[in-house]
Each structure stands twice: as structure tokens, then as C-alpha cells.
């Protein structure tokens, strides 16, 4: 059964198309990363899923219901990018307040444990560090035991320690058969913490698969060299090449087969190639390649 379905969804702000004909479905019980650079449409998609924004076109459903109904039924919990706490209330009071708004919440102690807030329960919200406040906001997102959890760049402003505790909590929560969708612009986070990665760029679906598939699809290696004033036309026809970038006389080829590409470059062209480098594509490279293609 699908927990989340986007059917040809688009969202326009004036002249800007933030989400462009996006269709995807997420199966219940999976943990999915929504990966994309800033401005890719991640937050807009999450806002629409929560009924905070209305799509310009298309339809969204959460467990078969419209987002507004899903929110009213307590099916959704979320950690949004900017969300202040009430400074005069303690961590425990805040969590309990939000908890009680849901029909079937988790026990208070369990929420505090999931977010690793045991020692901070009695502290006022205005005395928390940035990372601690983020963990409280995670606690607020899970307090109502929603079946679908949405996290918009959850680790922003977290230090290493908070990050570790946060991911542990997220996995514990997801382990109960719940669906988690988290937005991030770090491929590493997507790689380590999700079952499936959906890459979006400029509001469109750029790739969809496991982290390993995404990395493979992005092309294995890069070949870099200097071409100077010589024309770069035809480089994309070399064997194995999946993408070509030329910047100020410097060429970067992305290739699935380095040997074939180099053989073609030296034997098949008359170009004067200098400063040649071959490198394995890093995660960030893979990600950049994917988001640039679309």
C-alpha cells in the first residue's frame, strides 16, 4: 500500500515553477530520502504534503486521503525547517502539549527517549542549544505517533553528537512499520539512512532508486584535461562518455568506461590533450551529475 502519492503535481509561485509535474509514490513502511540541491522543490513538496500549500495542479494523497484530512486525522507528523518553540515552556511541557492534540499519541516517556531528551525534559526552551532545539522539534514530530513522518532537512544546525542521536531516534521510529520521508541536500545522509533515494532538481524527478543505484547511474569516473583554445565538439561521441562539461578550456568527461574513453580520445581525435587526470566520481559528483542532467 502506498503511504504517499504525488500525481502530476506542480506548484507555481508567480513566474517560478517550484515543482514541475512531479509524480511518485512511496510505499508504506519505507524510509525515503528526498535529495536535491537548494531550491529543488523539496520544502515546497513537503509543504504541499502537509496541506500548508495548495498545489497549482495535480493531486497528492496520504494513505488515500487528501493532505488536509490526513493532518486532521493525525496521520502526519513533521519537522519543518523553521519552527520556533515557545520560550517559556519546558521541553516536557511542549512535547506533552503537542502529544495531546493527537488521537493516539505515544507515551510521553517514549517520545522523550526516542529524541534522547531525558536529561533535558525540565529545561525551558529558551535555554536550549540549536541542536537540542532540533531534537525537541523531532520529538514534537513523532509525539502523536503519526504513520507518516516528514522531515525537512532535519540535521541542519545539529552538531555531530546531536546528529548521531537524531538518526538513531529516526531509525527506532521507522522500525515500527512507519513511513519516513526526509529531505536533505547531502547524498551521504541519503545513502546512510534511507531505503530509497528520490532525487529532484528544479522541481522535477531526476532519479529514483537505492543509493547504490543512484551512484552507479551517475557515471563511475571522471576524466579531466585541458584543451585550451581547441574546439570541444564531438567529445560527447567518445565511447563510454555520459556527460561533458567545458569551462574556460578545461574539460570534464564523465564516463562509464575510462579505458575506452581514453583510447578514443588519443586514437580517434587529433586534439592536443594536456594535464590529464582520471578520478573516481565522489558522491557529491554523482549527485551533481544527476541534478545537472535533468
Amino acid at each position: 500500500m502506498n503511504a504517499i502519492v504525488f500525481d502530476q503535481v506542480s506548484k507555481r509561485y508567480g513566474d517560478v515553477l517550484a515543482v514541475d509535474d512531479l509524480s511518485l509514490s512511496i510505499e508504506s513502511g519505507t524510509t525515503v530520502a528526498l535529495l536535491g540541491p537548494n531550491g529543488a522543490g523539496k520544502s515546497t513538496s513537503i509543504g504541499m504534503l502537509l496541506g500548508l500549500l495548495k498545489p497549482t495542479g495535480g493531486e497528492i494523497s496520504v494513505h488515500g486521503h487528501a493532505p488536509e484530512q490526513a493532518v486532521a486525522a493525525g496521520e502526519l507528523g513533521a519537522m519543518l525547517q523553521d519552527g520556533a518553540l515557545i520560550p517559556e515552556l519546558t521541553v516536557k511541557e511542549l512535547v506533552d502539549l503537542v502529544r495531546r492534540l493527537y488521537p493516539r499519541p505515544l507515551p510521553l516517556d517514549q517520545v522523550l527517549e526516542l529524541a534522547d531528551l531525558g536529561e533535558l525534559a525540565g529545561r525551558r526552551a529558551n535555554k536550549l542549544s540549536g541542536g537540542q532545539a532540533q531534537r525537541v522539534r523531532f520529538a514534537l514530530a513523532v509525539a502523536g505517533a503519526p504513520r507518516v513522518l516528514l522531515l525537512d532537512e532535519p540535521t541542519a544546525a545539529m552538531d555531530v553528537e546531536s546528529r548521531l542521536r537524531f538518526w538513531r531516534g529516526m531509525h527506532d521510529y521507522a522500525a515500527g512499520g512507519r513511513t519516513v520521508l526526509f529531505a536533505t541536500h547531502y547524498l551521504e545522509e541519503a545513502d546512510q539512512h534511507s531505503d530509497r533515494v528520490i532525487v529532484i532538481a528544479r522541481g522535477r524527478l531526476a532519479a529514483d532508486g537505492t543509493a547504490a543505484q543512484i551512484k552507479a547511474r551517475a557515471g563511475g569516473r571522471t576524466v579531466r584535461f585541458t584543451l585550451g583554445e581547441q574546439p570541444a565538439a564531438g567529445l560527447d561521441l567518445l565511447p563510454g562518455v555520459t556527460a561533458v562539461e567545458v569551462e574556460a578550456g578545461a574539460v570534464t568527461l564523465r564516463t562509464a568506461d575510462t579505458d575506452a574513453t581514453l583510447a578514443g580520445l588519443y586514437r580517434g581525435t587529433t586534439l592536443d590533450v594536456r594535464d590529464l587526470q582520471v578520478a573516481g566520481a565522489g558522491l557529491e559528483d554523482a549527485f551533481l551529475a544527476l541534478t545537472r542532467e535533468s
Binding site: 500548508l52 493525525g74 519543518l80 519552527g83 520556533a84 515557545i86 503537542v98 492534540l101 493527537y102 502523536g144
Partner: peptide, 18 residues
Amino acid sequence: AQERQTGWLRQLQITPLP
């Protein structure tokens, strides 16, 4: 006004509270 501006209102809007 503060709650509206800082996002606490949005936190409440995504709960079942009408």
C-alpha cells in the same frame, strides 16, 4: 504575532487541532 512569525503556528497547523 511572534508565533505566527517564528513558525510555531505552523507547528500547530500540522497537528489535528483545527
